[in-house]
Write a protein that binds this DNA or RNA. Structure first.
Lengths: 210, 210
DNA sequence: TTGTACTGAGCGAACGCTCGGTCGATCCTT
DNA sequence: AAGGATCGACCGAGCGTTCGCTCAGTACAA
């Protein structure tokens, strides 16, 4: 199950990349304003700078756009993550740093992450698995990092705990976007990161902020 | 900002309650299958057991249905919570129990919670605040419980940490629904509850399951 | 001239919502 | 008690509009 290819009527591969890039950018902006369903293909075409006919040279259906958007956002997040996380050996400091980097990326791309997060469910049963797989791959990044930290002896966790922890980290990042209507009022990103990291590692019973 | 009243053309208040109950039940089932936008008012009417004309005697617009659905789900969760959580004094055991109860409720109502969670965003800017307020009230329940535990001296947390912890608990519950495609494969509800509770209280650094 | 990217008027299905009308229950009058 | 008037819940055909998508035609580069 590799990346799903969306067929296009246009031959020039470079041009496809370019046009789809324009499409995705326009679509994200519209989706974050009105959501997927309330956004029309005409609006997307217009905001992309070409006609509705041209739009349909590069996709088969409106849903294809949503898929491309989700795919692109995941790639964006992953790229930024890989840029900044060197995955050599595992250590608690590494985990902390990775969380901070991840939260930063989520914050930078908050609109995109939120849009994707709220709209994936509109994907067809056929396309959904491809996107969920991406989410699992993201989880796996943290899972691997924690697992190595366990192997280094800095943490004592079983397989299942490692997995759940990875899920929690991911969700705490996403939560910064989908609960921002409340969290933003209470905390800055730095405060949020620091507190979540502390709670994650030390829980509430041991009091020793670092 | 009390509960928003949705006007109806029908006079009989009892009947309104009854019909809206039927409507909500039908709508939740359809929403969880196809989402709000892909569900038609005709489908809702039919599944409710009356005609499209009658449907519109009890609401003004399709969005009213979504609002009623969200409202009803919140009330359902809160009712079940209050039933089972006696809020006398605060203690760590109380917090643990409250989490377990909450996770159980979320599990019982997973379809409803998931639907609400995925569709609130489709509410108009006018109706949204009423629903977000409900979410804050839910958070406040846990906030209060934790605060009292702090006051009892069983926990040492500042105001902001208490708040964040309450948010985390709520999200961990919701997460059980919106990540069930993955979590369900890994854990039973009991395992999930136990592990999340432990991580929440003790973090990953101290190893002592109870 | 041929191939390819692009255009946008137009098609047809679907959808939210309305409104004229039906009909049983209830009230009023004699 | 009977007949008529009124009420109000319920109905569903149909209106107006929107929206995803198509395709016959154009522009232009090679």
């Amino acid at each position: 199950m590799a990346r799903k290819e969306v067929p296009s009527l246009v031959k020039d591969e470079k041009l496809i990349q370019k046009r789809r890039g324009e499409m995705i950018k326009a679509a994200v902006n519209l989706f974050k304003e009105n959501g997927f369903h309330r956004t029309t293909t005409r609006e997307i075409a217009k905001a992309s700078g070409f006609s509705i006919g041209t739009l349909y040279e590069y996709i088969r259906s409106k849903e294809d756009i949503l898929y491309l958007v989700c795919d692109s956002i995941y790639e964006g997040v992953r790229e930024k993550l890989n840029e900044q996380i060197g995955m050599t050996e595992g250590s608690i400091d590494h985990v902390k740093k990775a969380i901070a980097v991840y939260f930063n990326v989520v914050d930078e791309m908050q609109d995109e992450v939120l849009v994707m997060y709220q709209e994936v469910k509109s994907l067809s049963r056929e396309a959904l698995p491809y996107v969920l797989k991406k989410e699992l791959e993201m989880t796996a990044i943290f899972e691997e990092l924690i697992k190595q930290t366990v192997e280094q002896g800095e943490l004592d966790l079983c397989e299942e705990e490692v997995k759940l922890l990875a899920h929690n980290i991911l969700v705490h990042g996403q939560m910064w976007t989908f609960r921002r209507w409340s969290l933003r009022k209470e905390y800055s990103l730095e405060e949020y990161t620091k507190m979540q990291t502390h709670l994650l590692l030390y829980g509430v019973k041991s009091k020793s902020f670092t």
